[in-house]
C-alpha cells in the first residue's frame, strides 16, 4: 500500500488560515490502513481546525467527507455537487488523490494534509517499512523475494557491498543489509546457485528515470 504520514497541523493551518469554508476529504484505502488519512483522521483534523479557528475568533465552516478512494473518477464524482461550496479542500489522501482531486476540480484550491512516503507494508501497528520503489521491472524472482532496489541503500543488483557488516547496512546499524537477507533466503531455498549468476545491467527506463510513467492496457479498455 501507499504509506503516508500526518502533516504537522501548523502547516495545514497555514494553508487554510484565510478560508471561510473548508472541506476535509479523507480516503478509505491505503491512508486509512496507515492511520494518516481515513475517516478517523478526518474527524480529528476537522475538530482541531474548528477549535483553532474558534479560538482565533473566526467563523469558519469545516465539513468532513471520506471517499472510498480519491484515485478514481467515480468516487471523486460523489462530491461534484458540493465541492463548489468550499473555499478550500484539504485532502488527506496520498499525493495521487490530492492531484487527481486538483485536476478534477479546477476552481477550488486543494491542499495536502499528509506527506506521502513510500510503498510499504505494516510490520506492526505504528510501524511501516518500504518494500517497493515501483521500478517497473520486477527482479524479485531472482532475489528470493527480497527487493534490492527498495531495500538496499545503494540499489545494487550484485551485492552485498563492502558496507555490509554482520548482516546490517553501513548507513544504519539497525537496518538489515538487503543482500544479506537475499543470500540467507536463497540459502534457505537451496538456490544459492542463483546468487552466483551475475545480474545484467537493469533497464532503468521503466523507473522514474524515464520520466512520468503510464500503464496502457488496451485489453481492458472499453
Amino acid at each position: 500500500m501507499i504509506v503516508a504520514d500526518k502533516k504537522p497541523v501548523e502547516e495545514i493551518i497555514e494553508f487554510v488560515k484565510d478560508d471561510k469554508k473548508i472541506l476535509i476529504l479523507g480516503c478509505n484505502e491505503c491512508v486509512t490502513v496507515c492511520e494518516a488519512g481515513g475517516k478517523k483522521e478526518v474527524g480529528v483534523l476537522a475538530s482541531t481546525l474548528r477549535m483553532y479557528f474558534l479560538n482565533q475568533g473566526k467563523d469558519v465552516k469545516i465539513d468532513e467527507i471520506t471517499l472510498e478512494r480519491q484515485c478514481d473518477h467515480e468516487y471523486l464524482e460523489e462530491i461534484r455537487d458540493v465541492a463548489d461550496e468550499y473555499d478550500a479542500i484539504v485532502s488527506i489522501a496520498c499525493g495521487v488523490g490530492v492531484q487527481f482531486m486538483a485536476e478534477k476540480y479546477h476552481s477550488i484550491p486543494v491542499y495536502p494534509g499528509v506527506n506521502t512516503c513510500f510503498l510499504g507494508a505494516t510490520e506492526k501497528r505504528g510501524l511501516w517499512t518500504e518494500r517497493c520503489q515501483a521500478c517497473g521491472n520486477c527482479l524479485l524472482a531472482i532475489t528470493g523475494g527480497i527487493c534490492p532496489v527498495s531495500r538496499c541503500a545503494k540499489r545494487i543488483l550484485n551485492g552485498p557491498c563492502g558496507g555490509s557488516s554482520k548482516g546490517k547496512c553501513e548507513i544504519d546499524s539497525n537496518l538489515d543489509c538487503a543482500w544479506q537477507l537475499i543470500v540467507d533466503r536463497l540459502k534457505a531455498l537451496d538456490r544459492l546457485d542463483d546468487y552466483e549468476k551475475i545480474c545484467p545491467i537493469k533497464d532503468w527506463s521503466t523507473d522514474r528515470a524515464g520520466g512520468p510513467r503510464k500503464v496502457v492496457r488496451e485489453d481492458v479498455q472499453i
Binding site: E10, V44, T48, M51, Y52, N55, Q56
Partner: peptide, 8 residues
C-alpha cells in the same frame, strides 16, 4: 499536543 497547537 493538539490542544497546545490550537491554543487551548
Amino acid at each position: 499536543k493538539i490542544l497546545n497547537t490550537v491554543g487551548i
